[in-house]
Design a protein around this nucleic acid. Structure first.
Length: 426
RNA sequence: GGAGUAAUACCCAAGUUGGUGAAGGGGCUUCCCUGCUAAGGAAGUAGAUCGGGUAACCGGUGCGAGAGUUCGAAUCUCUCUUACUCCGCCA
């Protein structure tokens, strides 16, 4: 939620910033209604104050033997007079709230405006691998090495899914365990959250109401529940409606969960294999910070994501996203993108974002400073990391002429010391 | 899934509608006494949110959430949520 005061103070500035996110909005009507809303609050409340003070006279009147009916009538009359204003106020509150809750977050001022085309790589690790043989693509390798079974996944579930099997499952699990051990070393707290969340959680994260169609809702369950599209949705709700102490911040968490996504209509032929699916595994970091230290934690999280991919020895880049490519809730986002040789592009395997106070306002996540003043927290999230694009990158970047694949050293302790994946006989 | 009980401030807890912004206790803070691995005494300790004001302050809401009855609700009614107990069912 954008701070309404920012809109009241400088609506043109907010309009301009949102335009950088390619979001067109004009606040004229909103501001008119918002002014009327405030006017009505004053009217309705002063009427209520009169009613209250009259009601307080009742026991006094009774004690003095005066006629109480007089007060009843007056209060009733005041209530009657208040009714119309109250109704108008309710409508305006709904209008203003509905208006505000769909607005995306303001982008940081240093971001380039516009979409993807204005993303800028700011860091590159290693160079594109060169093969002196004809390299296979990730789907071929997964099949020849016997790591993933797409056909049986289609049978038991449907398209857009896969089965990790044997060493494939071990490799997947090794990645997850490697990430977990690194986050533990950095002092992040491990969380295994429920995968089924309530509507408020989706609202606070900023996924709802706009992106209700992107997640799986449970049918016929009341109150509504959905499968989390990322562990961020769970973690960023941990402190919903709470007030933390200043000294408790920053709080740093990570969670492993599968991520469940509709990915409606997004199937393209180049996104084969595990590049995009209805369910993928991800370890996610989320931090809660004071409102003046989120930039510092953002750097920390980007570095953590960066270090993980570096330790895997993969060629990748980090991109600073343009305003409109950051997701709706976020003020800034850096993507860590790993090189997939067969696709000839870099694919996101981590996305680190600073939501500033946007989610904290939606979910009333606050902290009290030493003077007793209450502030909104800042929330940040970042993948650390998603596996479903790392395995293609590892397989393709590390493949050898004989069809085998070298396992990154950091994963070997989690795979019983295995150094290499070899083709299976058909 | 069924039945019952409950939900009050940092914690425990009183409170079936009239001066209750909510008794009491613990804890915490400050002070006093005691010359001591203790104990005693005094005072203070709702917060949050919204509107108005430069501000001290004023007003609305507020006792799990929402709606209702009433001049007035923590207190009555309804719906929901959560916790506990019992029963059933069961990977």
């Amino acid at each position: 939620m954008i701070d309404i005061k920012k809109i009241e103070q400088d609506p043109k500035k907010v309009e301009e910033l949102l335009k950088r996110k390619l979001y067109d909005v004009n606040f004229d009507e909103f501001l008119t209604k918002n002014n009327r809303r405030k006017e009505l609050i004053a009217l309705v409340e002063s009427n209520k104050a009169q009613q209250n003070s009259l009601s307080k006279q009742v026991p006094v009147y009774k004690k003095e033997g005066k006629n109480v009916q007089e007060i009843f009538d007056k209060v009733k009359q005041l209530a009657q007079e208040n009714k119309q204003n109250q109704e108008e106020l309710e409508q305006l509150e709904k209008y203003c709230f509905d208006f505000l809750k769909v607005l995306p977050n303001l982008p940081d001022e240093d971001l380039l405006p516009g979409g993807k085309e204005n993303n800028r790589p700011i860091y590159t690790y290693k160079t594109k691998p060169v093969f002196n043989f004809k390299p296979k693509d990730h789907v071929e390798l997964e099949e020849s090495l016997g790591l993933i079974d797409y056909e049986r996944a289609a049978k038991i579930s449907g398209r857009g899914t896969w089965i990790y099997k044997g060493l494939g499952a071990q490799l997947e699990w090794a990645l997850i365990n490697f990430f977990i051990s690194e986050h533990l070393k950095d002092g992040y707290e491990f969380i295994l959250p429920p995968h089924l969340l309530n509507y408020e959680s989706g609202y606070t994260a900023g996924q709802f109401p706009k992106f209700e169609n992107d997640v799986f809702f449970l049918k016929d369950v009341e109150p509504r529940k959905f499968l989390l599209p990322t562990a961020e949705t769970a973690l960023v709700n941990l402190y919903r409606n709470e007030i933390l102490k200043e000294e408790d911040l920053p709080r740093k968490f990570f969670a492993y969960t599968p991520c469940y996504r509709m990915e409606a209509g997004s199937y393209r032929t180049e996104e084969r294999g595990t590049i995009r699916g209805y369910q993928f595994n991800k370890v996610e970091m989320v931090c809660y910070t004071k409102d003046n230290e989120s930039d510092q934690i953002f750097e920390e999280m980007v570095n953590k994501a960066k270090r993980l991919v570096e330790k895997l020895g993969l060629h990748f880049q980090i991109s600073k996203l343009a305003a409109a490519d950051c997701s709706a809730s976020m003020a800034r986002t850096y993507d860590v993108e790993v090189w997939i040789p067969s696709m000839g592009i870099y694919k996101e395997c981590s996305s680190v974002s600073n939501a500033r106070d946007y989610q904290a306002r939606r979910g009333m996540m606050r902290y009290k400073d030493k003077d007793g003043k209450v502030h909104y927290c800042h929330t940040l999230n970042g993948s650390g990391l998603a596996t479903s694009r790392l395995i293609p990158a590892i397989l393709e970047q590390n493949q050898q002429e004989d069809g085998s694949v070298i396992i990154p050293e950091v994963l070997r302790p989690f795979m019983g010391g295995l150094e290499k994946l070899s083709p299976i006989k058909k």
